[in-house]
């Protein structure tokens, strides 16, 4: 993989040198980004100017919308949403890890839990909204509950996969040193699960945000309510600004988790690519 990258780097270099200075600069990733992202912003601005702010606010409108959000205090609404998000997500991690360990590490655990986790996986969580409202109301518990229902599953499933994936030859190695069953679990299984756990946490975080947004859109409260109001009043500049902030909260949170992961797993297992996994 690394070699392939280096190869394409030199190939690109060779063809670019013919084009002079511009070509040489084009080799740099951030120059490419500057150019392409610049084009996207210009196109966005132009399209916005043509269609007008009631249809598609321009880039600058969106920036001004962000300023208005800050000045008019709408960010406080978003902070409350963020708090509910974090509580639900923290619950998902704290409960999801042990459940995943049991599900993946014990045959009996799988017998008891496996089919519910599978059912949870295939069910569109959105279908739970009308029920959750009746069970938990429209306030804090309901929102935390939805966030939990969206995100805990991914922590559980990834941790369980990690437990099933523990290398048999490393277990054998530990046994050859006379390790007891307990020692194999503590010293071999748990450290091997850590990268999977982080994969699950990262994925779960993304789904926690999805849960938060849909929970509030459903009851028209918090950030969701704000979005609905802004859409009705066609205040699209602020709407776009909020949408970008939500996307940024996702990106920022997942890079925080990634940094944490690099610190906790310095042996370099962190490069594991996350994708949704099939339960069981």
């Amino acid at each position: 993989m690394v070699d392939a990258r280096a190869l394409s780097q030199t190939r690109r270099g060779a063809s670019a040198s013919a084009l002079g200075t511009a070509g040489r600069l084009w080799r740099y990733k951030w120059i490419q980004r500057g150019v392409v992202w610049g084009i996207i912003v210009v196109a966005w601005q132009t399209f916005g100017l043509i269609r007008g702010p009631f249809y598609f606010p321009t880039f600058t409108d969106t920036i001004l919308g962000f300023v208005r959000l800050v000045v008019e205090g709408d960010l406080i609404v978003m902070a409350a949403s963020l708090q509910q998000l974090l509580v639900g997500f923290a619950l998902a991690v704290v409960i999801g890890i042990p459940v995943g360990l049991i599900l993946g590490g014990s045959r009996s655990g799988e017998a008891v839990l496996g089919h519910y986790i599978n059912a949870w996986y295939v069910t569109s969580k959105e279908a739970l909204l009308p029920l959750m409202i009746i069970l938990l109301g429209v306030g804090f518990e309901y929102r935390v509950g939805i966030v939990f229902a969206f995100s805990a599953l991914y922590v559980i499933v990834n941790v369980a996969t990690g437990m099933r994936d523990v290398s048999p030859s490393l277990i054998e190695t530990a046994r050859s040193f006379g390790a007891s069953r307990r020692q194999v679990i503590v010293k071999i299984a748990l450290p091997s699960v850590v990268p999977f756990m982080f994969a699950g946490i990262r994925l779960g975080y993304g789904f926690a945000i999805k849960g938060m947004v849909i929970a509030e859109l459903w009851v028209l409260g918090g950030t969701g309510g704000l979005l609905a109001d802004l859409a009705l009043q066609r205040e699209l500049d602020r709407y776009f600004a909020i949408a970008l902030i939500i996307a940024l909260v996702g990106v920022a949170g997942s890079s925080i988790i990634r940094t944490l992961e690099r610190h906790i797993t310095p042996w370099g297992a962190g490069a594991m690519r996350t994708t949704e996994r099939r339960a069981v």
């Binding site: 030859s169 040193f177 797993t265 042996w267």
Partner: peptide, 20 residues
């Protein structure tokens, strides 16, 4: 009866624990 602490083993694929 089983592995014991006074017997060492070396493996073909090293089997080092990657997190240590």
């Amino acid at each position: 009866q089983g592995p014991a602490g006074d017997r060492g083993m070396v493996f073909q694929s090293f089997n080092l624990f990657p997190w240590r």
